[in-house]
Amino acid sequence: MAITALILFITFLVLVGGVRTWIQVRRTGDTGDRREAARRDPVQRRIDGLAAMGALALGVASPVAALVGLGPVVESSLVEVGGLVLAVLGMVATFAAQLVMGDSWRAGVDPDEQTTLVTSGPFRLVRNPILTAVLVTCTGLTLMAPTVVGLAGLAAVVVANQLLVRRVEEPYLRRVHGEDYLLYAAAVGRFVPGIGRLK
């Protein structure tokens, strides 16, 4: 299952990075990539670094470690198959949520830019469906090659996503969308329906 996990991780990067960017360029003439602006913010830069290290650990290092003999934390074909199902569902959900964002989709936060506040589709259920789906994908990939390396990578991704939302995205959305965002955030959960609503 480790080879399958590697293939799925690469497929995930191509789908949610490459294909989604290509669609954005075709629709708007703009890549939607704001990571250069994000890198100017030291907080975003550190969070992105943590997320990247975590993703590489669970998506590459853990499967490779399993292939060269690092034993799994849990040895169960049921866990591995469950991981495969979660990874595929998470990939599809991530891509679908990205598409729902339409022209507002961005990779990275440019503090000087204003986009439309998206509250439709899966954004009616949670404020961050893309990150929720990414975490489902990462959990699935970790379960496919359940090593300590993968678990550490998954923990890093979870922490990075929490920090990104709480320290970067939410303050940005409050500033840019004001009362509209506050009303939305008071009614809709952060990552899970009903949980993490802002008061």
Rank of each mutant, 00 (worst) to 15 (best):
A152P: 09
T116S: 14
E170S: 07
G140M: 14
V118R: 01
L164G: 11
S120Q: 14
C138L: 13
A155E: 08
V176T: 15
M144S: 06
V134R: 09
A156N: 10
V176C: 04
R174M: 14
T142G: 11
A145E: 02
E113H: 02
E179G: 08
S120M: 08
T132L: 09
R174L: 10
L163N: 06
L135F: 06
P111V: 02
V149E: 07
L131S: 09
N128S: 10
G153V: 05
V165Y: 01
E179W: 10
R167Y: 11
N128G: 05
G140Q: 12
L173P: 04
A155V: 14
G121H: 03
A133P: 08
T119Q: 09
E113T: 12
P122I: 12
G153I: 03
L141P: 11
T147V: 08
N161F: 15
V176W: 10
R175C: 08
L131T: 07
G121C: 04
P146V: 09
L163R: 13
P146H: 11
A152Y: 07
T116D: 15
P111H: 12
V165P: 09
V158T: 08
L173I: 09
S120C: 08
S120R: 15
E170H: 10
T115Y: 09
A160P: 04
E170A: 08
R127D: 00
L163C: 12
D112K: 12
P111R: 11
L143C: 13
G121Q: 03
C138S: 14
L131A: 10
T132V: 05
P111D: 09
T115N: 01
V149H: 04
L151G: 08
V158Y: 12
V157S: 01
V159I: 15
P171M: 00
V157K: 00
L125A: 14
T139R: 02
N128V: 07
I130V: 15
T137E: 01
R127N: 00
T132G: 00
P171I: 00
E169Q: 12
Q114Y: 05
R175E: 15
R166N: 11
V134F: 10
L164T: 10
L143K: 03
L141M: 05
S120F: 04
A145P: 10
P129R: 12
T139M: 08
L141H: 02
V134K: 06
R124E: 14
G153M: 04
L154E: 03
P129D: 09
V118M: 01
V165T: 11
P171E: 03
L143E: 03
V158I: 15
V168R: 07
G150P: 07
R127A: 01
L163G: 13
A156H: 09
R166Q: 13
L117D: 00
P111G: 02
T119I: 12
V168N: 04
P129G: 06
V149T: 14
V149Q: 05
R174D: 13
D110E: 06
D112R: 13
V118I: 15
V126K: 02
T116C: 05
V165E: 02
G150C: 07
R174A: 13
